[in-house]
Design a protein around this nucleic acid. Sequence first.
DNA 1: TTTATTAGTTCGGGACCTAAACTTAAAAGC
DNA 2: GCTTTTAAGTTTAGGTCCCGAACTAATAAA
Lengths: 411, 411
Amino acid sequence: MPHAQPAGAHTVRRHNTGLVLGAIAEAGAVSRATVAAHTGLTKATVSSVVEAMIAADLVAETGQEQRSGRGRRGTELTLSPHGMHGLGVEIGVDYLATCLVDLTGEVRKRRIRGGDNRNRSVASVLGRLTTLTRTALADAQALGVPIGGLGLAVPGLVEPAAGLLRTAPNLGWREVDLDGELRARLDLADRPLLLGNEANFAALAELWSADDLPNFICVSGEIGIGAGIIIDSGLFEGVRGFSGEIGHLAIDPNGPRCSCGAHGCLEQLASVESILRAVGLWSAGAVDPTSVEALLDRLRAAHPATVQAVNEAGHWLGIALAGVVNVLDVPTIILGGRYATLQPWLADPITEELATRVLSATWHPVRVLASTVGPYAAVRGAATAVVRAIRADPASFVPTLVSQLAADSPR
Amino acid sequence: MPHAQPAGAHTVRRHNTGLVLGAIAEAGAVSRATVAAHTGLTKATVSSVVEAMIAADLVAETGQEQRSGRGRRGTELTLSPHGMHGLGVEIGVDYLATCLVDLTGEVRKRRIRGGDNRNRSVASVLGRLTTLTRTALADAQALGVPIGGLGLAVPGLVEPAAGLLRTAPNLGWREVDLDGELRARLDLADRPLLLGNEANFAALAELWSADDLPNFICVSGEIGIGAGIIIDSGLFEGVRGFSGEIGHLAIDPNGPRCSCGAHGCLEQLASVESILRAVGLWSAGAVDPTSVEALLDRLRAAHPATVQAVNEAGHWLGIALAGVVNVLDVPTIILGGRYATLQPWLADPITEELATRVLSATWHPVRVLASTVGPYAAVRGAATAVVRAIRADPASFVPTLVSQLAADSPR
DNA sequence: TTTATTAGTTCGGGACCTAAACTTAAAAGC
DNA sequence: GCTTTTAAGTTTAGGTCCCGAACTAATAAA
C-alpha cells in the first residue's frame, strides 16, 4: 500500500492556498470576503493567503466590486494575466503543435507545424519538436510570462509517472524516454513535464471547456482512434494506461489486417484514414485538410457512396462504444478530432448501435455530441493540465507561498 | 466542481492520526519509534497521537519488543482487540448474513440465515434482517466491543451516497430507501451505514485479503452475476454504480429472454442457476448447497454432459470478460461466490476466450484465479469496509482524537 | 449628519508540529 | 561489575498557521 505523507502546518497552508486560488479561478472576479464565505475560511486567513499569491503574481487586484446595496465595496481579485502559464506540446502523427495558455485556461498563442512524422526517425522528430518548443518558450518570454511546466501529448501508450512512451503504433515508436529526451534538449530545470496520451488530454480539454459534464467518453479520430474516459470530473487512466485504446478493439474477426498484427481492429474499419480510403480520397501518408474538406463537400451534397461509407464507419464505432458504455455506464459520448466535423453523419449510426446494444439505454439514452473545443484539443488539454496542476497546488510551483523553513517535499 | 473543505490544525491531527493507525495496522506490532520512522513524523508526535488512540481503545500496548542489539526495547503497539468493530450485513437472494470483524479485519462472529428472499415482501425481508442484525449487535455487546458502523451488501444497483437501492432484479425490488428503513428499525445513532453492491464488497474483501493485488475484476456468481472492479487498490464505482453489472451484458442476441426484458443476457447463459438448470439439478427457487455439491461430484467424476455445460458457461463468461478487459486493461480475474469452487472447470474456457479476444493478451496474459476469501466474501467485505473507514480516518469515529473545540465536520 | 452594513486588517489565543535536550532501559566493552 | 554506547520514549522551547473578535475603512440609507 502506498504510504501517505505526514501533515504539518505547511500542509494546511498548502491546501488552503489551492482552495483560495481555486475559488478565485471559478468565480472569475471576487472579493476576499466572498472567497472567505465560499471556502469556509476566515477573512483573516484569506487575506493572508491572497497577499502571498499577489506577491507571487498568481492573483491580481483589478479594481472595485460593482454591487448595489450598502456597505463597503470589495476589491476584485482575478487570476493574474502575467502569472504562470502552461505550455502544451503535441506530437501528432502528421503534425507538431504547441499551445500556450494562461491561468484562466485561455489560449494565448498556438503554433502548428504540419508534416508526416511516420517516415522520420525519433531523433529527427524530437529535433523538430525541440525547435518548435523553443519558439513557443520565446513567445512566452516576449509576453513576459513564466512557464510553470510542459504538457506533452503523444499518440500512443505512455507511463506518465515514468515519463516513458511505451509504444506508438502509428508513429512506429517503441520505448522512448520522452521525459529524458526533452529534458536533455530543453532547459526545463525542475519544472514538471506532464506526459499523456493524446486522447486523454483531448478529453480533459473537453471537460474543462464544458460547463458541467462530469462523465463522458471522448473519442478522438485522427489517423488512429483513441478514447479518453472522464469519470467524476477526472481522467480514468486505467491500469497500464491501456484503458482508452479502443482503436485496437477487435470488432470484425474477418476484417482487414492491422498494423498491430491483429485482424479487424476498429482502427481499420472506422478511422478517418479508412473512411478516406474507402471513398478514394486518400492521398499519401497524411490526413490532409483538403481531403477532409472534399469529404465534407461530398457529404453535404449527399453523395450516396460517401454517406454510405461514413455511415458504415459509424456502425463499427457504435459497436465498439457499446461495449465501453456497458462496462463503464457513461451517459455521454463526445466526438472529437476530425470526427467532430463528421458528427452529423456519424451520430445516427452510432446511436443506433448503442440503442440496441447498451443495456441501460432503455432508461438512460446515451447522447452523442460533437466536440466543443474543436481541432487541436489535445495540445490545449496538455497546456491546461499544467495550469490546472498549478491551480490545484500552487505551492508546489511557487515555494514562497508556504513558509520556507521545513517545507515538506513538493511532489 | 465539488468544493474541498478548508484545512486547519484539526485537519493535520486528523490526517496524522489515520497515518499512525494505518502504520500500526500494516505492521501488526510496532514501537512508537518505528512508526515515527515509517511515517516521517517525529517521535514526539507519534507519542502524542498514540496516547490519544490508546485512550480511545483503538490501540493497545502489548509488551516489549523482542530485538537483538543494544539499546532500550520499544513497547509494542497493536490494534486493540477491544476496539471498534465493523458489522457487515448482507441481503442475499437466498440468504441473509451478518459478519463481525475487529480492527485487524479478523472475523469474530458470522451468522447466516438461509431462505429464499424472492417470494417475500420488502418489509418481511427487512424485518428478518433486523432481527438477525439485532442478534449480531448483541454478539458484539457480549464480546464487549463497540460497533463503528454497518456495511450493507445487496444484490442490486445502489446509490451509496444517498443510501438508496435503485433496483435489485433478482429480488424484484425497486427504489428502496435502505438507509432510512434500517435506521428506522435499528438504533444506529449517527453511526455510518455503508451501502454497496454485493459484488463490489466481495471484490474489496478479495483486495484486503490478498497480499498485493491492486488491479483485478472479481466476478461473483450466485444467482445473478456481478463484478467488482478494483483499480489501484480502490473500488471503481463507475458513474451510476452500474459499472460492474456484467450480468446483463448482451452476449447472445438470440439467447433466452431475461428477467430484465432483454435477450441473451450473460446471466441467462452462465449463472450458477443456468448451469444447474442445464444439467437438471435445479430445484425450486434457491441455489441450495446440496445441488452445488451434486454438480461438483459430477464434475469430479468427469460426467461428460455436466463438464460440457460448465465449459459452455465458461465460454460465455470469457466473451463478456474479454470486453471488460479490453476496456479496462486489468491483468487478473478472480472467480468468487459459487464460481470459486467451479474455477478448475471454468478457468480454461474463460482463458481461451480471453486469449483470442483481448488485444493486449499477447503481451500480458490475463490470469484467472479462484477467490481466496471463499463464500460469504460480500458480508466480510461490507464489515471490513467499516473497519477500513475507521482506520483511514479514526477521528471521524472517535471525535476525542482531535481537540474538541472547533473541530471541522466529520463527513 | 448619523446609522447600518459590509470589506478588510490587526492582534491575542490555541492547536499542533518539529527539533533538541533529557530520561529510561538494555546490551556491549573492559 | 561498572562504565559506555545505543536506542526508546518524554519533556520543553520555538514556530507556523488558523480562528475569533475587535478595529478601521468605505459606502448607502435614514
